[in-house]
Nucleic acid binder design. Structure first.
Lengths: 111, 111
DNA sequence: TTGCTATTTCAATACAAATTGAAATACATA
DNA sequence: TATGTATTTCAATTTGTATTGAAATAGCAA
């Protein structure tokens, strides 16, 4: 494999390709991280997270604000829940959703 | 629509559902944000970003480290490039990729 | 009990993203 | 010019995700 001369030198200084690989984060950590990003990769789900950062809400209010069908909303709420970004607490007929600590971190980190 | 009594009061204090909607980020901003998260939602792409945070690299070295086929790698590099997370600069036969400022922000923000 | 609302679940479909392998491009060098 | 390497592009296929509508569940209230 031929590579640019300067790059070759840079890699030598680091200690070779093996040293670069060693510096990488743990594989499982990257997989978990990518799953969280995947949960965040939908405009509707970001809207839900932002809503819940303003005020914990029951699904029916979220549904009204976001104008989604019940089953569609339920699907997206489940994606967020499974990834530990929100949690629901049941009270009578309603389930009130709120951000988890993890969810708060991501909503507040507006990059 | 019936909702939990406490929630009803909370929403009143905020100024009603309309006020909650007003507090939401701009729709286009959320769409853009979701696209970036989508670009970050793959373990391979996160690995590439982390690699480039250690050292800008040409595609062939990334290919060797990540053990991907040329066309597969090219596809993922294009996703990252299109979302302005990395950029490539051509020199002779090689294209050396490095993180953009935006890319650096996301790699350094290890939530 | 009956009916009503909130919510989820499920199966079918529709849509989008990722992978593959072959071919194209582009530059370097013998 | 001919060959080889780096990289991208393209079309076909596979895989994964989202949407839909109907049905199920669960609690409340008449």
């Amino acid at each position: 494999m031929k590579i640019p001369e300067q790059l070759y030198k840079d890699i030598e200084v680091i200690g070779g390709i093996d040293k670069i690989i060693e510096k990488l984060p743990d594989e499982n950590r990257m997989i978990r991280q990518s799953q969280i990003y995947d949960a965040l990769s939908s405009p509707l789900r970001l809207k839900i997270l932002n809503l819940l950062s303003i005020q914990p809400l029951c699904a029916c209010v979220i549904q009204k604000i976001t104008k989604t069908s019940p089953s569609k909303l339920s699907y997206h709420l489940s994606v967020l829940t499974e990834n530990n970004l929100i949690e629901g607490s049941k009270e009578a007929t309603w389930i009130t959703y709120s951000l988890t600590e993890l969810g708060k971190q991501y909503v507040l980190t507006k990059l």
